[in-house]
Design a protein around this nucleic acid. Structure first.
Lengths: 332, 332
DNA sequence: CTGTTAGCGCCTTCAG
DNA sequence: CTGAAGGCGCTAACAG
């Protein structure tokens, strides 16, 4: 039914090798022949079969990208960076959503590898032993974006989560705050959970501010959990004067909890989020946050992957990009 | 380098046909043989090559999905519906982001078709003549989700945008509003732009409320444009008492413009959005909106596509799902 | 229940 | 500059 390279060859009166050459932009074709072939391709509506091509050439010019949560604006922006660079290097991308589910992640990675992608970009909460094991079975390069494995076995692009959290807390301390609360993500997550938590603790310790259990609540990065955490803090007899949430959504939830109580941000309580996703500019007061270079994380990771795929020399294996404190109206 | 079905066959002392059978779950294999094969697959770490399989079987068990804007929560939720049904029917998904750019859309569709997807799910702003032309060259079924072509040539799943907008405006009218403003998307878009605009106009007309040019502003669905539009309305000598924005983001922008002016929502001005994306529950006041069954749009569209791919009998070609008015705190 | 044999549509030497 | 021929790894009849 569909027209093949063979049909084109026959119609154009050349061999399929020649058709293949013009389709692939091989210069060793006489302009007249090229023209003739192009015309019959057009006339017949020939569309090259990428599957056959992939089998014959052993390259698919596509990379697999696994993303943990498609509805998270943070990753959406990372994907933008990935796509732009991919297009630049003529790679297609297969985007796969894992819903933060480890089983799905492993299964997606497998599927992607079966599909013979030329490389893989992995984003996810945590890189476990299981991940590593499946990564090791890959014959194509793999790059981790917005995460890394604990042993730095695989190339990665990320920020310094520990330092980022520490900077945020230190900013509060420098402003004179002593009662600083933390709304963190699950501490089981070594990077966005634990590392940021450590940053918080160390900042306090270095300033000789005693750590208080009741100034720390664990959320799940979502709005509701930020709200719940803040409600808890508000019940405390000596409630915090500053709150650092490790996601913008939780920070916004915290702000609303504060406002619902009749208090004001930042006058009564200051709040800072993390990530700098679009919503931080779509609330009142405008949210102060710790910004991650989302687009760059994606772009650098993709560029990194192309280097591996083309076996270009690479200098550093684990890239750390800069974070930045963004001060808007939820802090003074 | 990578291990092939042939290697497994040799190691297990069977033919590749047998290996193929166990890999594909064909029951015509003696349990003992199956076990033996499975073991050597495990031992060798054999991973079937989907590209070769696709070429031989002429099926890839993957469907292409083009999404106009990966950072739009609306589509993220539609994709959820698509994925769930796809998994249920054992299809993989290739998600492609078009950035609402027509050229990119056409090029993505082409790429997806070259990759021999078994079916295509298209979401996009507008379905132009060019889209139709490329759709027609496809040998695999195509379903439109959250959109439709003007001539209903292709199967589609969508809501009645005209009626949805009309319902929203009529709700304002019934509450007694006479000065009702509209913040719309580009009118060049026949569905989310024009159709909703027509719904607005007809609602007014049927209530004998004169249409006013200065009560209509065209935005781009984003926050900023909603804010700008609202600022314009607020300058009017007889400013509107109710505002209908055809996206939640624009509605939130409008609310903030109102609040920044020292006015209150809904007491001074009522506001309603469109879509019911997560942010509508993450603002103060909580946003009233017109909800689209996002997940269902995706799920129904995907189910629809599987029917086409399996040549099951189909009853209706263009499915219209129900919308719903959600009343929260930005309206009375 | 299992093996043999053709391809699937294309790329890629290798000749010419 | 162009053609012939041999796979790529796997599935799908068809025998047996």
């Amino acid at each position: 039914m569909p027209v093949t390279i063979y049909d084109v060859a026959r119609e154009a009166g050349v061999s399929m090798a020649t058709v293949s050459r013009v389709v692939n932009g091989n210069p060793n074709v006489k302009p007249a022949t090229r023209k003739k072939v192009l015309e019959t391709i057009e006339r017949l509506g020939y569309r090259p079969n990428a599957v056959a091509r992939g089998l014959a050439s052993k390259k698919t010019t596509t990379v697999g990208v696994v993303i943990p949560d498609i509805s998270n604006p943070f990753f959406a922006e990372v994907v933008r960076g990935i796509e732009d660079i991919a297009r630049m290097y003529h790679y297609n991308i297969i985007l796969s959503n894992s819903d933060k589910n480890v089983d799905k992640e492993l299964s997606l990675i497998n599927t992607l590898l079966e599909k013979q992608v030329d490389g893989l970009l992995f984003m996810g909460g945590e890189v476990t032993e299981e991940h590593l094991n499946i990564f090791k079975t890959s014959t194509v390069p793999i790059v981790l974006a917005a995460t890394k494995d604990s042993q730095n076995m695989f190339p990665s692009v990320d920020i310094d989560h520990y330092q980022a959290a520490k900077d945020a807390v230190e900013a509060f301390i420098q402003y004179g705050h002593q009662r600083i609360a933390l709304i963190t993500g699950p501490l089981t997550d070594p990077l966005t959970g634990l590392a940021r938590f450590e940053g918080y603790k160390d900042a306090l310790r270095e300033a000789n501010i005693p750590f208080r259990e009741d100034y720390v609540r664990v959320g799940n990065y979502r709005y509701e959990s930020g709200m719940e955490a803040m409600k808890f803090f508000l019940e405390l007899s000596d409630r915090p004067t500053a709150v650092f949430a490790t996601s913008d959504e939780m920070a916004v939830g915290a702000i609303h909890a504060i406002q619902d109580k009749g208090l004001t941000v930042p006058d009564d309580i200051e709040v800072r989020g993390f990530d700098n996703i679009p919503i931080s500019s779509m609330v009142r007061p405008l949210l102060s946050t710790v910004s991650q270079p989302q687009y760059d994380i994606g772009a650098v990771a993709m560029r990194f992957l192309t280097k591996h795929m083309n076996e270009e020399p690479i200098t550093e294996q684990n890239v750390i990009l800069e974070h930045e404190l963004i001060n808007r109206s939820s802090t003074k």
